[in-house]
Amino acid sequence: MLAVVTMPDLVTFIAAALAALVGAVGVVTLRHPVHAALMLVMTLFAIAVLFVEQGAQFLAAVQVIVYAGAIVVLFLFVIMLLGVDKRESIMPKNAVTWQLPIGLLFVIAILIELSILTKGVWATGTHSVTAAVNGVSNIAVLARAVFTTYLLPFEATSVLLVVAVLGAVVLSRIPRASTSEELALEMESDAKEEVELG
């Protein structure tokens, strides 16, 4: 079921979608790792705007807090501390040969799939657990769904994250951990905690 598209909706969508696309293209084309990371932030932010547009306000906030606020900061940290913040020749002239046509093939396949998906909901599985997309936020409904119906998957996910954190700590802690790894761990566990908070 399609909600009525109003003028403000349309303007917001076009602006945010453009920002997301520009950011996404920037991530893969910019040579400088820090610039690429910043473009990633722009894409994540634009997608958060699209979430707000859809009434998924909680998801938008979590997107900014966890992805833009913790994970990309972690990327930047590593880039800065490892000193790879220089213009890198990550794309030598003869590196990309046969990959190009295959990539193009995948792009076309994805475009076809997307255009099929926009026609109906059969491919996306079940309907929304909260309600129809109507631009009105429903955080309480989402919370109820997560903590009652989907409690087991939710808890299993958090256990998985804790196991990942513990594994990382154990693997890197046995000798003396090096500076950047420890720092990265702290930030990673912080990001994980925020995910669990959500």
Binding site: Q57, F58, A60, A61, V62, V64, I65, A68, G69, A70, V73, S137, I139
Partner: peptide, 11 residues
């Protein structure tokens, strides 16, 4: 989302 905006902005 109210107060989550505070967390988002501080990050």
């Amino acid at each position: 989302m109210g107060i989550l905006l505070l967390l988002a902005m501080s990050s």
